[in-house]
Amino acid sequence: MKLFLLKMFTWWNGQTFGTQLWTWRFGELVGEDEQGNRYFRTRGRKIDPALGFERRWVVYNGYAEATRIPPSWHGWIHHTVDVAPTEESYKPHEWEKPHIPNMTGTPAAYRPPGSTLASGRRPKATGDYQPWTPGN
Rank of each mutant, 00 (worst) to 15 (best):
W24R: 12
E87R: 03
S119Y: 10
F4E: 15
T133M: 07
P107V: 00
E54T: 14
P49I: 05
W12K: 15
E34I: 03
W73P: 04
F53A: 04
F53E: 13
A84E: 00
T106W: 10
P131L: 00
H74T: 07
G27N: 10
T116I: 10
Q130K: 14
R122P: 02
E32V: 12
F17P: 01
F17E: 07
Y39M: 03
L6C: 13
T10Y: 12
E96F: 04
R55H: 11
P85S: 03
A64N: 15
R68S: 14
P134V: 07
Y39L: 05
N61C: 13
P85D: 01
G62H: 08
P131I: 05
S119C: 08
Y129E: 06
E28A: 07
W73R: 00
Y39I: 01
S89M: 01
Q20P: 01
Y39C: 06
T10V: 15
D48Q: 09
W12C: 12
E87Q: 14
A66M: 10
N102L: 04
P98L: 04
G27C: 02
K46Y: 02
F26T: 07
L51G: 00
K91R: 06
M8R: 15
T106G: 02
N13C: 12
T80Y: 09
Q20C: 09
P112E: 11
A64Y: 10
A64E: 05
P92W: 05
D128L: 10
N13I: 11
A109E: 15
Q130F: 12
S119Q: 14
T80E: 13
T67N: 13
A118M: 06
R41I: 03
A64V: 15
Y129T: 08
H79M: 01
L21G: 05
T10K: 14
Y60N: 09
T23H: 05
V81D: 12
R111V: 11
P131E: 05
G36R: 06
W132D: 00
E32M: 14
I47W: 08
H78Y: 09
T67Y: 09
H99Q: 10
H78F: 12
E65W: 10
G31Y: 00
